[in-house]
Design a protein around this nucleic acid. Structure first.
Length: 813
RNA sequence: GCCGGGAUGGCGGAACAGGUAGACGCGAGGGACUUAAAAUCCCUUUCCCGAAAGGGAGUGCCGGUUCGAUUCCGGCUCCCGGCACCA
């Protein structure tokens, strides 16, 4: 009987669908498991990265189901986004149709791969029934002051024709198309993620199931910095301006003040002076992208240092970021490397105010800024105070005198969510000439995205849809204009994992009962590229939804698995590189089970996986060998078997060692590659034992049980062949619903152990004895071994160490 | 520059708690079956010396701790990733 994988896989695919095998069960008395893989953007065909991602999750979901958990394992589509619109520009297909077709193709592949999703819960972010609630959340945030509009310098991608969030600028380029990002001054919608900066940082400590590197990336991104704001007086304006510094101990070393060129006071200070024109020139000269520059100019104005009443020149420079701190920095060339370089370039004085204990620093001799701790000098009443203590003393003094205050700053900026694109969720806002910004009333949701649009690639298509733009103000009835920007698609995906738990219901966004039961997500699996973007946004949304009482959790993802990429020739598979291996073709040739096994076996989940055509053949061969092994011994399942003899013990032992290993690999380590290798070893072992079956009838029962168990162990990994073999061996029902094998600890006990004997750290011999033998006896045996005697003859034995049941270590001279 | 992570046979990788390094798979070599090939099965496969028995070296490099180090500590080299004027 041949292993006809195509036929088998089709058969079980249909049976599962018909029986609704993977529909979600929600029983309060049973433990739950929520397994989730990051939902895909449906951009054409499924690629190997998807295959890997969803197969890893599927093994876990199937394993937990067999373990008796109520499992939530849903699937959906991150369906809004730019590629759909670009396709429309290129080929004239409507984004909705393009997306629908892609989803259909993707879903077909997904079902071919045998992923155990509950398709009843399938959702799409582009469906009005979903984005209605995305808009609803936006309105709630607006209500709480967390969604707001402001004019700011924003990142602009000329290629995509839209603005981008900070998180979406990678190496100065667009995260999607890599084009260099330029800066534009625009009025846009933002979400106040910074209101949660401290909590997002603090709660990271509770994320014990997250990879350390993801947490570090988020921590760096949030970028907490504790320091002091110190005031300076601007002479002519008679106004005080604050600077943020983490080094208040260097306040006496300030030799100039620097404003960001975008600081609003700069214009006030230069108004009517010779510098007014020069500033304009300076701003115009600035590069349009964020580059490392050290340009600056004096603006003819001075400020007073309130600590020593000294007057210092005011400069503007492009190394000061307008959006961070106060947009003004005190220049301390002696103790800050950037200030040092700036001072050298523009001939500004360098004054040492912190010096190492053993020597006195001379500014002329410095080749770089002195950043270490030391003792304060030239610092008025603070002279001779150690710099570390000085930090606190200066801060205390500033607070006492009302010329400064302790301050915490974050690198994290508010999330820019406006997008000047069509294929996204409309922002539910109206602009009324009388009432200003007016939210769309809840009962008018969803604000539907119009279907009839002209997509040309020139500007936002929504601006050319009069019936969309024209609306009346819900407050005063006047003719109002509708917001034409759509939401960043990362907004759509920041709460989908909550929606899955409640299903696609119309009457409410999330049901408290479902939230309580299913959340948090027990295991979330996806690519490392979302370490900041999606994972940070989702944490933010969860915290907000908790604050308005919709969920009881403040962190959505208990455990996180960041899986590596699939490469060919060392590079990520991509159409432009032409190194794509199509999952469809691969399944045609080897079947879904072989493909699943290969992507699981070739590397541990978190590492990159190099595709290998030969490699998948190896896994395909494994399935053939397994098939033959079970089919050849089918008769064991259909005949009464003789009583078991002592000889069966070794089979049971090997079997239970395998169950133990596979279980630990899935449950505790997610080392799915080694789990598979352990099943391969069991197949090899049983193949070796085959010849004994004819002469030793006493092992028949154990052998049958080994085959039966093997099929169940393999089910989460290769479900199709497992179902078929399960049926062929006379079982009824789905093996997908059968209990996962359980270890019998009696068979794990070793009664014979092998001792390795080392002499001076080198292995010289070994011997077998019963386990737990007392040490003295073990020593005796070890020393009496012929090979050991050869090595110890004529030498002095210094010591003999016994590691119970493992090793004897002898030290000789 | 700062912060992470990594380096193990020809290749992907294993060694979970400091205890026989190289499981499992791929590739390669040899053999069986076959008219022949494919498929399948069996044997060998870290390197060096040796006919073998056996011996020596070996987990990026240098050193340390230890009876014993791929594993722990210190110092380097190279690779990969994140952040990058954040005051």
């Amino acid at each position: 009987m041949k292993y006809e994988f195509q036929k088998i896989e089709k058969k079980w695919r249909e049976k599962w669908a018909k029986a609704n095998t993977f529909a979600t069960n929600q029983k309060p008395e049973v433990s739950k498991a929520y397994v989730l893989e990051m939902f895909p953007y449906p951009s054409g065909n499924m690629h190997m990265g998807h295959v890997r991602n969803f197969t890893i999750g599927d093994v876990l979901a199937r394993y937990l189901k067999m373990k008796g958990y109520c499992v939530l394992h849903p699937f959906g589509w991150d369906a809004f986004g730019l590629p759909a619109e670009n396709a429309a520009i290129k080929s004239g297909v409507h984004p909705a149709a393009w997306t629908r077709d892609n989803i259909r193709m993707f879903r077909e592949s997904a079902q071919r791969l045998g992923w155990s999703y509950d398709w009843n819960r399938e959702l799409s972010t582009a469906h009005p029934g979903y984005y209605k609630w995305t808009q609803w959340i936006f309105l709630k945030m607006f209500e709480k002051g967390l969604a707001y509009r402001k004019n700011a310098a924003v990142n602009w991608c000329p290629q995509c024709g839209t603005v981008l969030a900070n998180e979406q600028v990678i190496d100065g380029g667009c995260w999607r198309c890599q084009s260099p990002v330029t800066i534009r001054q625009l009025e846009q919608w933002f979400l106040k993620i910074t209101a949660y900066a401290e909590e997002l940082l603090r709660d990271m400590e509770t994320l014990t199931g997250w990879p350390e590197r993801v947490k570090i990336m988020q921590k760096n991104w949030i970028g907490k910095s504790e320091g002091v704001e110190l005031d300076f007086e601007i002479i002519k304006l008679h106004e005080r301006v604050s600077v943020f510094t983490t080094r208040p101990d260097t306040i006496f070393g300030v030799t100039y003040l620097v404003f960001s060129p975008d600081h609003p006071w700069v214009d006030l200070m230069v108004k009517g002076t010779q510098y007014e024109e020069k500033i304009e020139e300076f701003r115009a000269r600035r590069p349009s992208t964020r580059e490392n520059m050290k340009e600056g100019m004096f603006i003819g104005e001075y400020a007073r240092n309130l600590f020593n009443n000294e007057c210092i020149p005011i400069w503007v420079a492009d190394y000061v970021v307008a959006e961070y701190g106060t947009g003004v920095v005190m220049g301390v060339p002696a103790h800050d490397q950037r200030d040092f370089e700036f001072a050298l370039a523009h001939n500004l004085p360098i004054r040492v105010v912190i010096t190492p204990r053993e020597e006195l620093l001379q500014p002329e001799c410095m080749t770089r800024a002195f950043l270490d701790e030391g003792v304060m000098v030239n610092s008025g009443d603070f002279t001779n105070i150690p710099s570390l203590e000085g930090k606190e003393r200066v801060a205390d003094y500033a607070e006492e005198k009302g010329i400064g205050r302790r301050k915490v700053n974050y690198r994290l900026r508010d999330w820019l969510i406006s997008r000047q694109r069509y294929w996204g969720c409309p922002i539910p806002i109206l602009y009324c000439p009388h009432c200003g910004i007016v939210p769309v009333p809840e009962e008018d949701l969803p604000v539907l995205l119009p279907e009839k649009v002209q997509i040309t690639g020139e500007g936002n298509p929504l601006e050319k849809v009069p019936e969309f733009i024209h609306a009346s103000c819900p407050k005063c009835g006047a003719s109002a204009r509708r917001e034409t920007d759509t939401l960043d698609t990362f907004v759509d995906s920041s709460w989908y994992f909550l929606r899955y738990a409640t299903g696609n219901r119309d009457d409410m966004i999330l049901s408290p009962e479902d939230m309580k039961y299913w959340l948090p997500v027990d295991c979330y699996i996806g690519g490392i590229e979302h370490a900041i973007l999606h994972l940070l946004y989702s944490r933010f949304f969860t915290k907000f939804l908790a604050d308005i009482g919709l969920v009881h959790i403040r962190e959505p993802f208990q455990n996180l698995l960041t899986q590596g990429m699939v490469t060919l020739g060392g590079a990520v598979m991509s159409k432009s590189r032409g190194n794509v291996v199509e999952p469809g073709e691969t399944m045609e040739k080897y079947g879904a089970d072989s493909l699943r096994l290969f992507v699981l076996f070739a590397a541990p989940p978190e590492k990159d996986l190099e595709w290998s055509h030969r490699g998948i053949e190896g896994l395909h061969r494994f399935l053939h060998r397994l098939w033959r092994l079970v089919i050849d011994h089918r008769n064991l399942f259909f005949a009464p078997l003789p009583p078991e003899s002592e000889e069966a013990y070794s089979i049971r032992k090997y079997l239970h060692k395998t169950i133990q290993g596979v279980t630990v690999d899935i449950r505790d380590r997610m080392h799915l590659n080694t789990a598979i290798s352990k099943m391969m070893e069991l197949v090899n072992f049983l193949t070796e034992k085959e010849s004994e079956l004819t002469v030793r009838v006493g092992i028949h029962q154990a052998y049958r049980e080994a085959l039966d168990t093997l099929i169940r162990l393999l089910t989460p990994f290769a479900p199709f062949i497992s179902e078929e073999l399960w049926e062929m061996t006379g079982h009824t029902g789905f093996v997908s619903e059968a209990p996962f094998p359980v270890v019998d600890a009696r068979f794990l006990k070793e009664e014979m152990v092998t001792y390795v004997v080392q002499i001076n750290g080198k292995v010289r011999d070994q011997f077998g004895v019963e386990a737990g033998l007392d040490e003295e006896r073990v020593k005796e045996i070890a020393l009496s071994l012929e090979k050991i005697q050869k090595w110890t003859r004529g030498k002095t034995i210094d010591r003999v160490l016994v590691i119970p049941d493992k090793m004897v270590s002898i030290v000789v001279r």
